[in-house]
Each structure stands twice: as structure tokens, then as C-alpha cells.
Design a binder for these strands. Sequence first.
RNA 1: GGUCCCGUAGCUCAGCGGAUAGAGCGACCGCCUCCUAAGCGGUAGGUCGUGGGUUCAAUUCCCGCCGGGACCA
Length: 599
Amino acid sequence: MDALRHTFEQRLAAALPGVDITLERPKSGELGDLAFPCFRAGKQLGKNPVQLSQELAASIAIEGAQLVAAGPYLNLKLTAETRAKAVLGAILEAAPERPYGFRPANGKKVIVEYSSPNIAKLFTIGHLRSTMIGHALAQTHQALGYDVIRLNHLGDWGTQFGTLLAAYTRWAQDGNADLERDFDWAEPAPDKRRTPLFRLFQLYVRFHAEEENDPAMRDEARGWFKRLEAGDAEARRLWSWFREISLKEFQRIYDRLGVSFDTLAQGEAFYEDRLVPTMQRLEDAGLLVEGDKGARIINLEDVGISTPCLVQKGDGTSIYATRDLAAALYRKEAYGFDRCLYVVGTDQVLHFQQIFAVLDKLDPWFKGRMLHTPFGMVKLPEGKMSTRKGNVIFLEDVLDEARERVAAIIDEKNPELADKAEVAEMLGMGAVVFFDAMNDRVKPITFTWDRVIALDGDTGPYVQYAHARIMSVLRKAGGDWAAKAQPGACVGPVVPFEPAALPADLVGLEAPEAQALLFELAGLPGAMTAVVEGCMATPLARQLVAVARSFSGYYTNCPILAPENTPTVRDARLALCVATARALRQGLFLMGIQAPEEM
RNA sequence: GGUCCCGUAGCUCAGCGGAUAGAGCGACCGCCUCCUAAGCGGUAGGUCGUGGGUUCAAUUCCCGCCGGGACCA
């Protein structure tokens, strides 16, 4: 396909010297495979675009393709066979280490900072957004040849530890020091949540509830955080223990989600001893100004940000802006990146504008390298979720509920299925994770169970279903067909398949449904590029749906194993199945979703 | 009060300078003697919030206004 594109571009350039040639992808495969809109060229040459397109169609010839003038567009339409050969070849003959749509190393380094949960809090449905968007971005960048560093800026420092330390010493230390039992003042935790982390969370929630009526408690919490920052041994010991408890739980969730990081050791606390040098650098650069109550701030009015960046509070304690600055400076030294993505919610847009502006002032090197990828908050129909108030939807509850709903459907539709539990987990996850990617907009999401765990229509399970059906056909085809859609062990973003030879003859794929499927498969590399350019998984998710949808059309209209098919037709159609299965499996994997063999 | 984001079909959302504005859900009508009906086909449903401007071309870019949200104070 790339070769054909190149030829088309060259022919156009030869016919239109001095005109910039930008090709588009037509809206549908019926129009063609590549389109050249003649508006701009027409203007440059003083010609009517409709006429220009007709002239070009008549004067340019490309083997295996037809040039069609459609109004002001010049469309390159491949013959059924060329299209099949180009697309199937690109997928089936790809080297195992560089699947379809992947690119060779480009020497660029990208840091993706994502997930970043706070210690002592449980994952809510909100955390899924950062975690899975970040995961998909990391995977796709890697697929396109970037060197990716996956960082988790754990919230393991900050004033919330003051709260936690105060709450723990107040209510837990004597009676329940090891957090092994439920508290007698709290609702007993459901079985699956009877963990030390959940009890820490309960302490946190209780402290905030009682603090409302007792402002003195706020000072108590602040006092503990000061002790922690000052290196107080007891505060440190508890902090480190809380952290350990939390990390153990987090790891379990990450394992379930199939997400991993280069390190979990570079959370906020990691930068603690870099705060003083960072403040010094700001001071040396003459950026620090005295704010209200002895706070230290940096004015950003000259760069169009009216709110100054607060880097140290009046009481001398640090704030997360300082830690983000220290982190960025450290990352420059340690990694020397080309791009640093922060997958953090829209509520932090001002914060990152400020951080990036301060970095620009401090060191021009940062200019253009820092990028905030904001995503909308998850809200409940009754309003904002609040961990403090305890009205939250926990991520694990959503995943469990999704799994149960899927299991019920399996019992109804395919009770004989082996590995029921495993498949239910795959599909449940597929539903929840895919939903999130389909809605990757800056707009907030209102959580309702039926929306987030939808299983019909444009959903993860729909794409997974297409894959399962293909595998079923391939199994029935016998021979080594099923094996051709069976990958080796995944490495990074790569789902490795052994190269498979194209059938010698590709007749049997002339039907519009087969051609439409080929067209959508051809759109996947572009979708991957769009993920990296737009920093969102949405284009990939939508292209996968388009592939799955056109596969359904192909499946219903082009019988693959029908006895009346000649072996040639059968083989060509099976080859398209294998290619589709490979593409779907790889695409889903980039998003962190597994493709089942059967469902 | 200031800054930023969002207003597209009954609902949830794509599209974000160009070819007849697309999906899913919901509604209605069809399709399992045939490779998994978690599916497929069809019908109904839109002055792309609103008023200007830029352009050969605006749902898409710019400005005002009206609604909704976020952040800062």
C-alpha cells in the first residue's frame, strides 16, 4: 500500500510540478483507496478543480489501479486483486517483531506518565481513564518506533499523609495497629475488600468527615505532614508502611489490567530530596516572589497566565507543583526525552500550564517537549465522585460486575464453553476498557452501570466477537489455518505472528463486502498514527470497530467454507480471515484488551 | 470576577476546512434446515446552540451572545 501511495504521489508530482501533493483517505472504499483533492492545485494552476481532476484521470496511469475523477477529487481505486494483495501481503508477510502498522525505531524518546494513584486510596473507575489511556499511548508510541519510558507518578507524598498519619494515630494505633481487622465504627467491609488498604481508606474518609466539625483536626494533620517532611522517625516508619500496603494492592490491579511500568519507585516521594535544589534553581533564576502569608510564588503574567504558580506554602511545606518541577528537571537529566506526556485529568490543566511555563523560563530546552493529555472526569448521576466523602465507584467493583454480566450471557448462549471464567474476565475488561477509549474526549463521563458495561453495539465485546468467530471458522477449516492466527508470546506492544505466505491466487475477494473489509484493514496504520498525533486511543478503537463491522458483513455475505467454493476461493477467503484476526488481536492488545479464541 | 473546556439525531457519542453530516443505544419492520443471532439487513429520527466574520468552500477556523462544566481567586 505504501508503495502504491508513493507511485501515486510521484505521478502527481510529475504532472503538477511545484504543487504540493497531499493525499487523503476517501470516506469509503467504494470511492477508492487514496484521494487527491484538486482544490488547492486547481487554484495554484488557475484551473477548475473538476476539470483538473478529469485531466489527471485521463493522463495518469498506474498499474493495478484505476484513476477516477469524482467531481473535484481524483481517486485512486485499486483493482480488487491489487487491493487484496497489498493489504493481505502487508499483514500476513510482516515480520514477527514488526507487525502490520508498526514502524522501525525512530530514535525518539517519549516519557508517558500515567495512572499515578494516591497511596492509601482504592482505585476508582476514574483511575481507569489515566491508566488505560496511558497504557494505550505507551504501547502505540512504542509500536511506531519510539523509545518509551512508562512512569507512574505515585501520590506517595503530600498533605494527605498528614491526614492519614493523624487518623491512624488517633483511631487505629492502639486497637488495630496492624490494620488486620475491620473497625468497629465502620460498616464491615465486603469480603473481597477486607484488606489493610481498605481500612486505611476508611481512616482517611472518617478523618475528613469529622474534620468538618472540628477545625483543630486540620492543624493536627498539617502538623503530622510537617513532621514527615522534617524526617521524624515515627512518621517515616508509618509512611513507608502505608506505602507498602498500597503498592501491594496496586500491583494486583495492574496485573489484572495487564499494565506495567518501567518503575514504581519514582513517585512524588522520590523527588523529596530534590526539592531544595529545585527551589534554589528557581531562586537563582530570579523567579521566586513572596506571595500571601509568606508563600513563595512565580509570576506568569508575562506569558499570559494570570494565576501565579505556587511552589511553597506559607508554612514552608512543599506543594505538588514543586515536585512536578523537580520531576521534570530530573527526567531531563536521567532520560533526555523528546516528548513527555502527562495523562492527567482536565482538572489539572491550569496546573500543567503553569508547570510548563515555569520550565520554559528555567530552561528553554523544555519548550515544546511537555504535553498534558487531559481527560474528562468520571462523575456520578448525582454529582462529582469524592474519595473523601466515600461516594465513589471502585474500579474492581466495575470489573467484577462486568465479568458477572458476561458470565450470565455465556451461560445462556454458550454453556459448553471451556475456560468460562477466563473468557468472562476478558470480555468484561474488554467492555469497560473499550468504552473508555471510545469516549476519550475532554468531556466528563457520567457513570452508569449499563453504559460502562454495555455489551452490544460498538463495544469491546463486539470486536472480540468478530475475532472469536474468525477463530471458529479457521478451526473448522482444518489444516494449519487456526495456527496461522495463533501468536507467540507478546513482547512489549508486539503480538508476534509467523509470516504466512499469500495464496497464489486471490480470486474470491471481489465481493464488495470483502473489498470493504480490506479497505478498513488498510485504515489501521493511519489510526495508529492518529493515536500518537492526537494522544488518544479513540481513533484506534473506532477503526477496530470498523474492521469488525465490515468483517461481519463479509462473514454473512461471503461464505468461507461453503462446499461449492473452489479450493482457490476458499483459501483466499481464509487468508482474509487470518489477516483480520491478526489485525484485530494486535489492535486490541495495544489497548490492553485480550482477544478470545471462542466466546 | 478571571482563565480554560464543551454544546451535532429522543439518549450516548464520532467527524473538526472540502465529496450525499456518521455510529451505537432506544423505537419500528424483517432474517437462524446455512461457518457462533453477543450477529445481519431495513425504516423513522438532524436549520451540526445562536448571530456575525474569514474563505472558491465552514458542523469544522475567528469574534460576540446564550446554555452546561472545570480550574483559579
